[in-house]
């Protein structure tokens, strides 16, 4: 799922720090934005905008961090509105709802661990590619 690969060039100390920060940004946003999933995406998107003219290594990792938020945005938003409907409409807690929320927690946890690992490795200047997201990132992000 996550692989250390060689990048097109050896990134400098400053680049590694910025690239690592893009993952940290999504981590902080996860903590702040748990009740409102869209916040994670907005925070990562703002960081992406600020660095879209950065070096290739920084741009690449900002893009991967941003894309990784998308799939979570869909499942978290659905879970969020389902929960809201339980609190404010006649919708009731069901086995299906609990199973969905547990699946959401499982996927968020996996993403969280992957993000922490990637932030640490990227800070060391290592190039981490995520399954699926790296492919899309490489399509969008050119040297």
């Amino acid at each position: 799922m996550i692989q250390i690969k060689s990048f097109a060039y050896e990134p400098g100390e400053h680049e590694s720090e910025k690239a690592s920060n893009s993952y940290l940004m999504s981590l902080i946003a996860v903590m702040v934005g748990l009740p409102l999933p869209i916040i994670n995406l907005i925070a990562t998107f703002i960081f992406y905008l600020g660095n879209r003219k950065g070096t290739y290594f920084v741009r690449w990792h900002c893009t991967q961090a941003l894309l990784s938020q998308f799939s979570l945005l869909f499942i978290n938003s659905f879970g969020f509105w389902w929960t809201v409907s339980i609190f404010f409409t006649e919708e009731q807690i069901s086995n299906r709802y609990i199973a969905y929320m547990l699946a959401v927690i499982l996927f968020n946890l996996t993403e969280l661990i992957a993000t922490i690992y990637t932030a640490i490795q990227t800070r060391k200047g290592k190039h981490i590619e995520w399954w699926l997201y790296a492919d899309i990132t490489s399509l969008l992000c050119k040297p």
């Binding site: 499942i75 086995n95 609990i98 699946a103």
Partner: peptide, 26 residues
């Protein structure tokens, strides 16, 4: 390849949901 991976991800999530639903969480 990307489309296939997206599909796998969707199936993986739905599959996890389905398997978890088999447990009586209530």
């Amino acid at each position: 390849k990307i489309v296939l991976k997206i599909l796998i991800l969707v199936v993986l999530f739905l599959g996890t949901w389905f398997v978890l639903e088999q447990v009586n969480w209530m």
